[in-house]
Design a protein around this nucleic acid. Structure first.
Length: 543
RNA sequence: GUGCCUGUAGCUCAAUUGGAUAGAGCACUGGACUCCGGAUCCAGAGGUUGCGGGUUCAAUUCCCGCCAGGCACGCCA
């Protein structure tokens, strides 16, 4: 990785002087060179000399280094580097030899868990869940590619009050089918899917539970509704090509006794008390917030309590680090969650939250209101149906997670409008078609041969861009931002299309050059396959 | 009221966490295959980075204060 090589060289020059400070190596505007560094600007303070003089010191030290064809100083004291052609050829050769392993660092044994897509199983996934699912899926993929031991997990809140509301709502729908009218409970679920479930249920059991309601029947309706909703959710996940390694249910945590264990620990630490018939957690002892209820006066557990137990469970499962991916509406949950982990003597660094802002869905310029309970929403299923899996995944990944995502349905649906997904996929299809054309023309592809014929600026620049994938993957995991990856592949596509338009790849009059360029395309193809795989979108041979 | 996020070209978004003349796409203007896929490419125009201070060699980025939008402040999840 070029960036690292340059960084190491600069660092070792610093250590000769026994200086140690942070600086960066980055890709500047093309007119400045291949890479640049601010090492001299920052170093001025340590060298006690003007930046330009410090820069000259570095240039002197690096002048005979075969890695560079040129090192210069510019502006206020930036060091600009041009990588030698020979080195680029070496790198390309290395990529072709190692294929995708070129971009994989040595194994990193850290055990990570990503929790995302967690929801009440009370309705189908909404568009909002979609963003979360893709962020979680893509980040998991990248961490895994970089050698981490990754578990993707979904948490199901299948034990709470909402499930009982769901059961009752289904029961009301069921009765309606027999012409018996009951009021939907307040905050009940109004979604049409419950009517479908009710019809199915009527076929299966007839009038068995008509106008009857007790604890047994409630349990039956809860199980029936949850089972069917999970089926819906799984079918959506399949369409999205999103797989979980495990699903943890709230119910199972309670049955395992983890909630009791947590309560016991808190009790021993004097962190709980009773008031108004409920059990409270002394959050105010730990952070500057109000105390919270753990057990309601009717004896049921709050979400907060079972979630603490869940995170205790994660800790007992010996993850080195866990990430919770939520919508930004959950941000209020963070401080108290961190406080409770502290109360359990779990190190603060164990848990990190990744919050994403909301998705605003627009249809004909109008904002579509989404709410699971009112039943007015566009489901993730419908969205995938309309715009396809690839566009859905790419669009959810391509924005900074901290910004609101405007998803214009009409625009996304339209096949004629320019779509970044098509742009990047088209580049890949084009590469394939060049190889096909070469076969038609009888130009034989000689793997790893003739590559020293590559010398044009744009060719070497493409090699640099391929090399940069290592940095981009690292950056994606450090900033926990999938959009860095989509930006990268879009940038590679721009460079490739530009190269394609400018230079003829298959040139009958110069077969070695053609072969060199085919080798370059082969390396580009590997990078596309890596990135498409990480994003979970298809790599089309033809379009 | 308190806390979190956001504000960048007409629109949708970037900007390598403090770097050089703030970049792309759409839309607009004008060009490019008798040729490896024109779903492409090249060029032009478009900016007081919400406003005002501060920190320093350097601020879209960090700090303070305003303004605007989103979200959260439950014995909901």
């Amino acid at each position: 990785m070029l960036r690292e090589l340059i960084y190491e060289r600069l660092k070792s020059i610093l250590s000769e002087q026994e200086f140690q400070y942070d600086f960066n190596v980055e890709v500047p505007d093309e007119r400045f060179g291949d890479f640049s560094s601010n090492v001299a600007l920052i170093g001025a303070r340590y060298f006690k000399k003007p930046p330009i003089e410090v820069a000259r010191y570095f240039i002197n030290k690096l002048s005979n280094d075969p890695l560079f064809s040129e090192v210069s100083v510019a502006g206020p004291g930036f060091l600009n580097f041009k990588i030698s052609k020979d080195y680029y050829i070496n790198i390309l050769n290395d990529m072709l030899t190692k294929e995708k392993n070129y971009w994989k660092p040595k194994k990193n044994g850290l055990k990570l868990q990503f929790e995302y897509g967690s929801a009440n199983p009370t309705g189908p996934f909404t568009v909002g869940h979609g963003r979360q699912l893709i962020i979680g899926d893509v980040l998991s993929n990248v961490f895994k590619f970089l050698g981490f031991d990754v578990t993707r997990e979904m948490y199901l809140n299948d034990a709470g009050r909402q499930i009982r509301l769901l059961a009752k709502s289904l029961w009301v729908r069921y009765n309606e089918l027999f012409g018996k009218s009951f009021e939907l409970p307040e905050d009940g679920y109004k979604g049409g899917y419950l009517i479908d479930f009710a019809k199915k249920l009527k076929d299966e059991i007839g009038d068995k539970y008509l106008e009857k309601w007790d604890n047994e029947i409630e349990k039956f309706f809860m199980d029936y509704a949850v089972r069917n909703i999970l089926e819906m959710m799984n079918s959506t996940l399949e369409k999205l090509d999103s797989k979980f390694d495990s699903v943890v249910s709230e119910k199972s945590l309670i049955e395992k006794g983890l909630v009791d264990e947590v309560l016991e620990i808190f009790k021993n630490k004097g962190l709980i008390y009773e008031k108004d018939g409920a059990v409270w957690f002394k959050v105010s002892n730990l952070i500057n917030e109000e105390d919270k209820v753990l057990i309601r006066s009717d004896g049921t557990y709050t979400y907060f309590l079972t979630d603490i137990a869940y995170h205790y469970d994660k800790f007992l499962r010996k993850f080195d680090k866990v990430y919770d991916i939520f919508g930004s509406d959950h941000h209020g949950h963070i401080p108290r969650m961190k406080a409770s982990l502290k109360a359990l003597d779990i190190p603060e660094s164990f848990l990190d939250f990744i919050l994403h802002q909301f998705v605003t869905l627009k249809r004909n310029g109008q904002v579509v209101k989404m709410s699971t309970r009112s039943g007015e929403f566009v489901t993730l299923d419908e969205l995938i149906e309309e715009v396809g899996k690839d566009a859905t995944r790419y669009f959810f990944a391509m924005n900074d997670i901290n910004t609101h995502l405007n998803f214009d349905l009409e625009l996304a649906k339209s096949k004629t409008v320019d779509n970044p997904v098509f742009y990047v996929q088209y580049a890949y299809a084009r590469i394939n078609s060049v190889f096909e054309k070469a076969r038609e023309k009888g130009i034989k592809f000689r793997f790893k041969e003739d590559i020293e014929r590559l010398e044009k600026e744009i060719e070497l620049n493409l090699i640099k861009h391929l090399d940069e994938l290592s940095f981009v993957l690292k950056d994606t995991t450090e900033k926990l931002s999938p959009h860095i990856l989509t930006n990268y592949i879009y940038g590679l596509s721009e460079k490739f299309h530009s190269f394609y338009a400018k230079e003829k790849i298959l040139d009958d009059s110069d077969l070695p050059l053609s072969n060199a360029r085919l080798n370059l395309l082969y390396a580009i193809k590997i990078v596309y396959e890596i990135v498409f795989n990480l994003l979970g979108i298809t790599a089309p041979d033809h379009m």
